[in-house]
Design a protein around this nucleic acid. Structure first.
Lengths: 229, 229
DNA sequence: TTTTGTGAACTAGTTCACAGCT
DNA sequence: AGCTGTGAACTAGTTCACAAAA
């Protein structure tokens, strides 16, 4: 237990500061949150780390450690109150407010992502698409997300308070578009284009590389065939 | 050097068996391969682990270790021959043949993925889309991938030799569709639906969770705001 | 009794540093 | 001289195991 920070020279918000939490941990927090939403919907009031761990293939201590980085949310002998823990996780993950997202590239992928229901959950709002093709600008996605000229990014990002950009442009222009995103003051970017991109310090880039994912499956299949011991 | 497996009771293919290679390693192999393609295109004949490491933010020893799991591909004093290493990596990753892919779900995301150029590289071929909506079956994607009835999955997967499935259906039906995929004999699955899915042993499931990715960015932004020490 | 929170032990992954080959 | 391949050292992440709280 580490209640009471007497003596410690950092009052802050006690925990919450979480300077050195690994991304593996925060990713798991998202997973826990999703499960808590389901549990709350099902009317479950309280859940133990063991019961939670069972749902994913995870160790219960892992879950307790993950949560302990941010505070003491559990009750010994009982577990975690679903509603409480959910509220804490939403706050830790910064989901207790609306976060506006822009999608760069109104091609197949960009348009699909703009209307993807998973993106609309938990406080995210897709506010705008950006493209450089004259004929796309002024149109909108099937779900009604407007397509703007990429040159208006800075202006619109400021006006709409866009905090996150998603890169869904072809390989060749990804770095260039990323530079525009960074210049417009956006600090968090989810990238779907393949290949290495450079961002300055203070900007978080998270990449989803579909080619790597597919090739990882290919490797698995190839192994299965060679492994004829 | 570990040439000559005298004494060892496993002649096999010497290396290549690679029983315990981490997924982190194989993911990096994909990244190296992409870079080698670019280098070959640029006419570069040979590359050192240092020069490769520089491109991504990686340690050179990391690259040498990753490659060493599968054999000795380098030449001391020289580095790696680009063409040679590329060929080896393609073989290790199982990309030295055509791999056919089916996409489950002809919604926005499924259709976008079907025509995604990144998927068409390196020997992958999107052979078919599957959906359960009467009005979609018989149509095709803009790029010409035919949409079949999901009930014909087994038949078509066998006929076309489909080895990989991509799950792009709504959350609610993901597990059900995955079960059909597994029943049809497909052993490798790339999943885009959120939430935990169960697969039997011997089937590889790789999930890309867009919600988790976005929430990870949200966490980063929230930290930046709180970290006002 | 149940279940948390957490130090200690363990396991996995990365980087160092250098012998040995070209 | 240059660069690989790899044990040894180190760092990060996970699991164990148990005291303390409800």
């Amino acid at each position: 237990m580490k209640t009471s920070n007497k003596g410690s020279a950092k009052p802050k918000t006690d925990k919450q500061t979480a300077d050195q939490v690994s991304e593996l941990t925060t990713n798991r927090l998202s997973v826990y949150l999703r499960s808590l939403n389901a549990l709350e919907g099902a009317g479950v009031r309280t859940i133990s780390s063991h019961a939670l761990a069972e749902q994913f293939q995870l160790n219960a201590a892992q879950i307790r450690k993950d949560l302990a980085y941010f505070g003491e949310f559990g009750v010994r002998g009982v577990g975690y109150y679903v509603r409480d823990l959910k509220r804490h996780l939403r706050q830790i993950l910064g989901l207790d407010r609306k976060l506006r997202v822009a999608i760069m590239g109104a091609g197949n992928l960009g348009l699909a992502l703009a209307d993807y229901p998973g993106f609309r959950q938990e406080g995210f709002e897709i506010s705008a698409l950006f493209d450089n093709l004259r004929e796309k600008v002024g149109q909108q996605s099937r779900g009604g997300v407007p397509i703007h000229d990429i040159h208006d990014l800075k202006k619109i990002a400021r006006r709409e308070g866009i905090r996150i950009a998603v890169i869904a442009v072809p390989q060749g222009s990804a770095q260039q578009v990323l530079n525009l995103v960074v210049a417009s003051g956006i600090k968090a970017v989810l990238n779907f284009s393949p290949g290495a991109l450079q961002v300055p310090d203070g900007v978080k880039l998270k990449s989803v590389d579909l080619t790597v994912s597919l090739e990882s499956l290919s490797f698995f299949l190839a192994q299965g065939e060679t492994r004829g011991d």
